[in-house]
Amino acid sequence: MLKAYKYRMYPTKEQEEKFFQHFGACRFIYNWALEQKIKSYEQDGKSISRFDLNKGITILKRDGEHEWLKDVNSQSLQGATLNLDNAFTRFFREKRSFPKFKSKKNPVQAYNVPQNYKVDFENNKIYLPKIGNVKTILHRHYGDGDLKTATVSRTSTGKYYISILVDNGLETPKKSEFSENDTVGIDVGIKDFAITSNGNKIDNPKHLRNSMKRLKVLSKRLSRKQKGSKNRKKARQKIAKIHEKISNQRHDFQHKVSTKLISENQAVVLETLNVSGMLKNHNLAQHISDASWSSFVTKLEYKAEWYGKTILRIGQFEPSTKICNVCGYHNKNITLADRKWQCHDCGTSHDRDVNAAVNIKKFALNTQNLIGI
Rank of each mutant, 00 (worst) to 15 (best):
K3S: 14
A4V: 03
T12Y: 01
K13N: 07
R27S: 04
E42S: 15
G45R: 09
F51K: 11
N54G: 13
K61P: 14
D63P: 03
G64L: 06
H66Y: 13
K70H: 15
Q75R: 13
S76W: 11
S76M: 04
S76P: 08
L82K: 12
D85F: 06
A87P: 04
R93K: 15
E94S: 14
K95S: 10
F98Y: 06
P99G: 04
N106L: 08
N106K: 09
N112M: 11
V113L: 11
N116A: 15
V119S: 09
I126E: 00
L128I: 11
G143Q: 05
D146F: 14
D146C: 13
V152F: 11
T155W: 04
T157F: 00
G158D: 04
S163F: 02
L165A: 15
N168P: 13
K174Y: 01
F178H: 02
G185D: 01
G185T: 01
A194F: 09
I195S: 10
D203H: 05
K206Y: 00
H207L: 12
N210I: 15
V217K: 11
S219F: 00
S223A: 13
K225G: 07
S229H: 00
N231P: 03
K233G: 00
K234I: 00
A235I: 02
Q237I: 08
H243S: 10
S258G: 11
I262Q: 10
N265P: 12
N265I: 05
V269Y: 02
S276C: 06
K280I: 03
K280S: 12
N283T: 09
L284C: 05
Q286K: 15
S292C: 09
W293M: 14
T298H: 06
Y302I: 08
W306G: 08
T310N: 08
R313I: 05
R313G: 12
Q316Y: 06
F317R: 08
T321F: 02
T335S: 14
C346S: 06
G347S: 07
S349I: 09
H350G: 11
A357N: 04
L365C: 03
I371S: 02
G372I: 10
